[in-house]
Amino acid sequence: MNALLQVRKLSRHYGQRIGCQDVSFDLHPGELLCIVGESGSGKSTLLNTMAAQLAPSAGSIRYRQKNDAWLELDALSEADRRRLAREEWGFVTQNPRDGLRLNVSAGANVAERLMALGMRDYGRLREIASSWLARVEIDPLRIDDAPTSFSGGMQQRLQIARTLVTQPRLVFMDEPTAGLDVSVQARILDLLRRLVNELGLAAVMVTHDLAVARLLAARTMVMQGGCVVETGLTDQILDDPQHPYTQLLVSSVLTT
């Protein structure tokens, strides 16, 4: 199988400080990869660098486009970067308020990416927005409500709908369930799991929660101090951790 994203020796430094260092991996179509590690381990830096939101200090990222042509992300123009972000990628932020447009209605939030792709049929936009609200378990009757009137969990689900409505091929997710109640988390995780399967998405998800990795990801990378210390099958990493840091991480999980 052909990879969708190829990351090679990727580093991102902030002056003298290391954000992430020497990261290499392949992501295949339809695959969800989790990056776990504690706060400050470089997970989000890595994610933002991969998503071309930060410029890498060294290394390369290649992305295979819809037309099968490989794209070198460091040679990407701003126009191409935006086209990718609009047409082929999605980004889900930890705080839904960063990913949503709070001053327009839920329906407009969902429809925005479609309009950016040139859809100009209001009736059709409404229809798609409604069906996506239902898909993320938001009552379609709330289509004209402002996202500010939604709970945190609903806002996150709205952000997911807004991101996935254009059926991107690759989605980057930065702790999409952090800061939510456990019951709300479970709902979002189940939803993500279902949508990722249904749409055949490839995704890279940053999380500090090992249970999230176990539930969603076939493969996991463990980061510490900006470096990947262990990588492999998620169940392998959680059930037979090799690196001291991974062992510490796994043994620190509370079990109920």
Binding site: A108, M115, A116
Partner: peptide, 11 residues
Amino acid sequence: DYGLMHVKLYE
């Protein structure tokens, strides 16, 4: 990149 303008008309 003008998709945003239609968001206003949609609203």
